[in-house]
Design a protein around this nucleic acid. Structure first.
Lengths: 198, 198
DNA sequence: CCAGAACTAGGACAATTGTCCCAATTCAGA
DNA sequence: TCTGAATTGGGACAATTGTCCTAGTTCTGG
């Protein structure tokens, strides 16, 4: 069936774009990975940019689904933010090899001046607004987006260095620091509220 | 003279690799930028990888020089670390457009499985050990490398997000946070020392 | 069962890639 | 000034790129 092949192409392209980058991945590479002929591509995707769109949309959908799952998982917002932080460990091996899929794609598209750069940024925005929502529920009000960006940035930096140095210990240590930071923020917030009430 | 041309090639390649990435920059691009013929390249650089080596060595030399300048600038180690943090602001415009030169190159070479990846990591190591030295002088002992990696990671994350969102306010805010973090670390350290003495 | 749509394989196409050669020019040293 | 090395420009080269076409095959709805 058509949809199956299309999905298989996107799935293979997703992986290859992540592992080797968008520019460095050719039609031939994807075709070989899927096991279909190069020419067959044109029927499913008119241009390479179309495949990129497909890949980004797939990532957007998968990410949204993951965040939704965490949201309905019942645990408190702080626990959800911890889930986000722990992606670094869950995907630790891949991150050490290829970096963060979101950050590296965004960087590459920025350099290529690619039209889909804003779509890649939308992936970041998905995490950003989700994190922001969690902080709002924790009572951080206007500071929520700031905190969301902070933790998003921290994980990006950890991914970049863990990749550069292939360092698992660093990754774990920084995850601990981020969790501590989260606890501190929550603790500080509650003392603030106390002093406001008094 | 030969050296002049060679340097002009490396300088142009350095800029293009930073702005558009290594893979996306062709011989023709560099030649056009320098204003010499494509064929003339072969006399100076046998392969594209040779140019990359030249660029990385140039960056290594420039970085070392910059760090040395900061080191002899007389101010205390904390001030030096602040100098490092403020690169994010000094180079803010470029970073928002193209990301961190060190981090993005390192990521790209990791994905390309390129032989020069370790050389790119050496650029990180330059900053890492320099920062480590400053923390040691501040009295952080065994924790110095940890702190160096922490601040290195923070700035990487800030660069990635400032680039993705083209956000100058975020960049400035995070720089402030990093400086505050540094002050806190130093303050905590001095109270620790006090309690040890008592 | 059959017409038309969906799909596939294979290759053509011009453009670009990194690499390389060669003839012309410039330069340095005797 | 003369010689040989260093440098340069203008391509040639095969390989690969993204794009596109065409002729077959498979599938589906009536």
């Amino acid at each position: 069936m058509a949809v199956e092949t299309r999905d298989r192409i996107i799935e293979a392209a997703d992986l290859l774009f992540y592992q080797h980058g968008f520019e460095a991945t050719s039609f031939a590479d994807i075709a070989a990975s899927v096991g279909i002929s190069r020419g067959n591509f044109y029927h499913h995707f008119k241009t390479k940019d179309d495949i990129l769109d497909g890949v980004i949309n797939r990532r957007l959908a998968n990410t949204e689904q993951m965040l939704d799952r965490w949201e309905i998982a019942g645990s408190d917002p702080a626990e959800r933010v911890r889930s986000f932080i722990h992606i670094l460990i869950v995907n630790g091996e891949k991150i050490r090899k290829f970096g963060c899929p979101v950050g590296t794609l965004s960087s590459e598209l920025a350099k290529l001046n690619h039209a889909a750069k804003s779509d890649a940024t939308a992936l970041f925005t998905l995490f950003r607004s989700w994190l922001c929502r969690q902080f709002e529920r924790l009572g951080f009000g206007d500071r929520s987006d700031e905190l969301a960006m902070h933790i998003l940035g921290r994980s990006q930096g950890v991914a970049t260095l863990a990749n550069a140095f292939d360092d698992d210990r660093f990754l774990h240590h920084e995850v601990d620091l981020m969790c501590t930071w989260l606890d501190d923020q929550i603790a500080e917030l509650s003392t603030e509220n106390h002093s406001v009430r008094e």
